[in-house]
Every structure is written in C-alpha cells, then in structure tokens.
C-alpha cells in the first residue's frame, strides 16, 4: 500500500511547504526603476502575494511568485515600478 501522507488524518505541516510558482500565472511583470525607488516599502505592505523583497537599496518582486497584479505599481508613490507585458 503506497501512502502519500505520513499522518493518519488530513493534516499538513510547513515542514513540507506548498510551493506553487504562481509567477507562471503572470501576464505582466513589475520592473522596479532601481534608481527611482524611495524604499518607502509601500509595495511591500500592499503586495497581495507577499513577494516583495528588499535588495541593497530598492524593493523588487520575487518573480517566481509574483502574479503580476500591478498593485505594487499602483501604490508606488514614486511611480518607480513599471508593468511590462510578459512575452511568451
């Protein structure tokens, strides 16, 4: 008998994290104009996917998970995040 779960019931643990690369859903991607980023972090707060990361001196999206919703670009007070169409 082959089992998938080590548990008796329908339980799960973050030790086995669900890793869906939701970046594949994306039809457009955010590109931060690095030099223009004010590091205000508003995109970090508002990114629904929780995928904004801080680099040396700017914020940018983790494109493995970014679904391309455009909220970061929308809330950016510096207009430093461009939405670029993904080419297939």
């Amino acid at each position: 008998m082959k089992f998938m779960s080590k548990f008796e019931g329908p339980w799960s643990t973050p030790k086995e994290p669900l890793d869906i690369k939701t970046g594949e859903w994306r039809s457009q991607r955010p590109v931060t104009k690095r030099e223009k980023c004010r590091q205000c972090g508003w995109c970090f707060i508002f990114c629904p996917a929780g995928c904004i990361e801080e680099k040396a001196h700017y914020f940018t999206a983790d494109l493995d998970y970014c679904k391309g919703c455009g909220v970061c670009s929308n809330v950016c007070p510096a207009k430093a995040i461009m939405m670029i169409r993904e080419e297939i």
């Binding site: 998938m4 779960s5 548990f7 019931g9 329908p10 339980w11 799960s12 643990t13 973050p14």
Partner: peptide, 29 residues
C-alpha cells in the same frame, strides 16, 4: 498524539487533492 502547538505548527484539516490522498485518508480511517 499530534497536537496543535505553536512550536510545531500544523494545519488540521487540509484541502485534499489529489483524490488518491482523499482515498488514503478514508482507507486509514
């Protein structure tokens, strides 16, 4: 007995996909 603790967080009653997994839980029960 598996318990719900802050130290070893778990989700109880997960969303079951694929169907084989559902079958597995029923079999185990």
């Amino acid at each position: 007995r598996l318990k719900w603790t802050l130290e070893e967080p778990m989700v109880f009653s997960s969303y079951t996909v694929p169907p084989e997994l559902y079958t597995e839980y029923r079999y185990k029960m």
